[in-house]
Amino acid sequence: MAINQDTVKHVAHLARIDLEQKELEKISQQLHAILDYIDTLRKLDVKDVPPTSHILPIKNVLRQDLPQESLPVDEALKNAPNKERNFFVVPKVIE
């Protein structure tokens, strides 16, 4: 299946990545070649094959809801590019 620049542009928006025109062109070409190769999978008939999303027979791992040790706030905020009191600071969201 072909992938064109418009699709890559749309996907880049979904993935929240800005791309300059030159980069967009290059990546579109590369993704086209990669998807071309991936299309070899279409040779297989998998209509009746169940999907494997996970290799172990583990489902819904739960634990007791008990208070446990947690990170102090200042430790959790230690790496923030911008912070104030107990908050991460981000550019204004609401008009």
Binding site: I3, T7, V11, L14, A15, I17, I27, L31, I34, L35
Partner: peptide, 16 residues
Amino acid sequence: GQEAKRRVLLGTFALS
């Protein structure tokens, strides 16, 4: 970097 962008875009595409 370039490869990270390529993979994130390919993965986003495959899930879109």
